[in-house]
Amino acid sequence: MLAYTEKIREAARRLLAENRVDVVIGYRKGTIPFANEPFLAKSSEQVDRLYWDGFCGANLANYLPKRTDRVAIVAKGCDSRNIVVQVLENQISRDNLYILGAPCKGMLDRRAIRKALKGKEATSCEEEDGKIVVSGRGFSTSFERTDVLQENCTICIHRNPVIYDELLGDLVPEQQGVDRYEDVRKVEAMSPEERWRYFEELTASCIRCYACRNACPMCFCPTCFVDESTPQWVGKTINPTDTRTFHFLRAYHLGGRCTDCGACERACPVGIKVRQFTKKLEKDIIELYGYEVGLSLEQRPPLDTYKPGDPESFIK
């Protein structure tokens, strides 16, 4: 995958030189292990700072809405699906985009690695041939890549970009026979009281920093519902009702728009599994309307359309 770095730089240099685009959005190498920083290259001098490895989990589509310049952007499978939704929702024009598709074998989960290190601090991390080697003061240990993937990546069935102008590498085989909703079904099988407690515990440590919301490429309302004050729909405290209302409505706003890219869960500073809310919506939308998010520029989003025979057994 490290070959991508060279490909990204080559493409960025060429596109900027040919004046095909004004800027290139990619990543630059992070200042600490397990992290990279989204980066905007504006000139060929900056191109060599572009970088790629398994810690490019931040969703770059987040930086697209309302841009009016011509942008080249590095996009994994999930990112490309988010771009499709943004185009459908008129946040960005496809004509202004040059998508550098990055077939992806999953992004690495810094939390899983840290957990496996049991308190030892890593100072460097190298990735090679499906393995990652983590070292720190007086230790060096290696992991199978597949053991420390972000959870959403382990169940991803769209690793290849769905739209792109150029690929950074060969398409990768898609994962087959993945059970995407095992965890959702487990919760569905609980009693209402158990479910309530499950989500109560899930959100108990929330500090209302909104990292989940802000990391999401689909959150671009000019005024978020949590910031509305007349009337104030959602309280701003860390009272469990306020926190729960925030998480509930944040998730609901992503109905038919979430691609399970995992940016929200990845961003949470206290490790809340916020995807437990959005995955239920994703599952329902497939079951009720047969729609998978972000696969087609032709089909309207599921909540922006209807069919006369839509399910309505819940309506009296």
Binding site: R195, F199, Y252, L288, K316
Partner: peptide, 29 residues
């Protein structure tokens, strides 16, 4: 109401998913 029907289907399911009893929320035509 046709757009609303889709919104409500998801809303009702999600509310129930997080622990609200199904009979708290009703819809009718």
């Amino acid at each position: 109401n046709l757009y609303a029907r889709r919104k409500f289907a998801l809303l009702k399911n999600l509310l129930e998913h997080v622990g609200i009893e199904p009979d708290r929320l009703h819809f009718s035509w």
